[in-house]
Structure formats: structure tokens, C-alpha cells
Design a protein around this nucleic acid. Sequence first.
DNA 1: TTGTCATATGAACAAATGTTCATATATTGA
DNA 2: TCAATATATGAACATTTGTTCATATGACAA
Lengths: 118, 118
Amino acid sequence: MTDELEQGSGVIHQDIIDKVKAELPADEILYDLAELFKVFGDSTRIKIICALFEKELCVGDLSVLLNVSQSAISHQLRTLKQARLVKFRRDGKVIYYSLDDDHIKNIFDAGYKHVIEE
Amino acid sequence: MTDELEQGSGVIHQDIIDKVKAELPADEILYDLAELFKVFGDSTRIKIICALFEKELCVGDLSVLLNVSQSAISHQLRTLKQARLVKFRRDGKVIYYSLDDDHIKNIFDAGYKHVIEE
DNA sequence: TTGTCATATGAACAAATGTTCATATATTGA
DNA sequence: TCAATATATGAACATTTGTTCATATGACAA
């Protein structure tokens, strides 16, 4: 046996495949990258991110602002926290969230430019 | 009745909420933006995109290169096509795919920078 | 035409995801 | 200590999503 997966995919250009393969970033990096974009790929989370560009906000503020339940916001903040996109500080009972990273704006803007075109 | 959704979310700063709300892009734009990032948020698709940075490739090439079935590649190319991220040209039986947009690289790079840090 | 090759597509299915609901935790003030 | 408030979390559930499998389409060569 040569290699797994005998797909009927007509291999066309093995030389090109090899060349491109050599240029591809490591699988793990591309996996992480997909995971990162996945976090941006939900409208509730994008709205949270976008809101936090303006100002740090507490959970209640976000809930009212985006008209999403407190629980849902909290769950999504957890996702954002795990992706290390947001940080938080406590002030008594209230917890304020803000963006944790400078790249976030760049990623957002790059996508934004694509979306608003034409 | 005042407004839908009487969440028990302790509204804290109505003034800030109003201010931030005024700055948020339209809902539809943020929705589209999330949809765009969603397309980047799958490792197979990211790999396809990344491969196409190097060179136009046919379905068979992509299938072998990424070790993904022809059908799966084809389905994902459909998604990328619908998002107008790839275009294609036919040459006999073979169909070559390439990237359709200059922003794609910017979006990818912005995410990439975030991922490779530290 | 007919057969073959490259790609597309629909149905089915398992896995991942986002929200809700109920409840837990943590902090403050009485 | 107790009640109230802000937030977090786990389980359940409905959707969405990505792959597979089988098959259809379209192009070429014989």
C-alpha cells in the first residue's frame, strides 16, 4: 500500500502540488488561524468586539446594548476570553470587559473593508 | 409594554450604552462581517485559501495537496465561491481556482500575525 | 454516440455551536 | 449572617456545519 485515501481525485500536477506544499504554513498554525477566525464568525461576538472598540463595558451593558440575554453574553465572553481577545477587571459586583489585543482591530478592519465594498 | 426581552440584566450605564450604540455599524454589516469570518473559520477552507495564495490550482491538486476528498474540496470551493473569495476558469475538463479578491490576503495576514505571536 | 475523466451536487449523518433555563458563585450593604 | 445584585456555568435542545457516499453533469477522445 502506498498511502492512505485512494480518492478518485485525478492528480494533475504533482510538481506544483509539491511546490505549494513547501510554502504552506504548518498545519497547526493554519488550524489555530481557523480557530481564531471562527471566534470572529458569529454576529453576537462580532458585535461584542465592535462595542468594546468604543469602550470597556460590563456584562449588563452588553446585554442591553445588543439585546441579548445576560447568559448568552456571558457565554460568549467566555469564548472571547479563551481566545484571549478580551480581558476584564472587577469593580465590586460589576465586571468590565475590554479588548486584550491590538491585532483585533486590524483583523476586524481587514474584514470590514471587504464587506463594505460596492 | 415597554420593550421586548425583560432580562434580569442589571442595566448599569444607559448613557454609555447609548453612546456606544451610536457608533456601532449597522446590524446588517456586522452580520455580513460575521459571515465573512465564518468562511475563514474552517481549517480546510483556510488551507485552500492559503494554497491559492501561491498559485491557481485545480480541484484534484487541492484534494491531493490537502489530503481531503474531491467531494469535500468541491463543497468547500462552493462555499468560497458563494462568498466571492475565489473565482475559476475552465480548461477542458479541468477547472482552475484562484483567489478573487485583494482583501483576502490582508484578512489572512491580520489573523496570521495574531496567531504566530509569542 | 460512447466511454472516460474532472468536477459538482444532493441526501444523510455525525459533530460542533449558540441559546435558553435553572442554578451557582461572588461581592456588597443592611 | 442575610438579602440583593452581577456574573458565571452546566445541561438540554435546536441549528448549523463539514464530511461521506452515491450519483449527476460537462467536456473530451475514440
